[in-house]
Amino acid sequence: MRDKIRVKFEKTGMMKFIGHLDVMRYFQKAIRRANIDIAYSEGFSPHQKMSFAAPLGIGLVGMGEYFDIEVYSIQGSSEDMKNALNNTMVDGFKVVSLRKLPENVPNAMSSVYAADYTVTIHGDNIKLSPKELSEKIIAFYNQDTIITEKETKKSTRMLDIKPLIYSLTSVDGVTKMCLSTGSTDNIKPELVMQKFCETYLGIEYTEDPILFDYQRDEVYTNVAKEGEAMKLVTLEDMGEVIEG
């Protein structure tokens, strides 16, 4: 059984314009540059054993992004490997932590359950005092249902996103939310803000001009047993620090 390592990283500044596939390519090469002893598949075109948690859309800053790798061997401590990777990063990418996963922990992609987002008004594109914003966000979240149109590849369906918004607050002009994330019931913060704009601000949601800046702060898994209430743990905390 090969060791699995979970890497947490930040994607900031203009690197927010790099798409998910290119982020994967970037880290595949970074891992080679940093001499991490990553495991490869068999065959004529071996590829690295790597699995990303949740793709982040173009234009979003990520402060708690994750991927898992399988390695043939662990060289040094968490800190050593983190430094090796950070020595080869470009501005805008930074490895925050690197941890070994216990054997029974599912991989990053299948464990994603929720994510925290921070949303701020882009420049002064919406004229609204922090106090007003806060009140309207509270009113918006206090609705019994929040019915939105959710577009899938095939069709558009009506969906109540209220139960998928685990929290929503706005303080000093900074709006924070925790949203259901992952392969089922994936909710994007843009969808929440679009509905908010249309129903509580009475304005059309646009991307030109941009109304909001989005940042994903953290990604969580749910460790609750069946029947228990939701219990969120960061993907990072599922791993253990490798001591030198």
């Binding site: 500044g13 203009m14 314009f17 173009i58 234009g59 501005d91 882009h122 991307e207 030109d208 941009i210």
Partner: peptide, 13 residues
């Protein structure tokens, strides 16, 4: 970090 010559709206489009 260098500021892009293009504003966000253009880069997203």
């Amino acid at each position: 970090m260098i500021k892009p010559a293009l504003r966000d709206e253009i880069l997203l489009k």
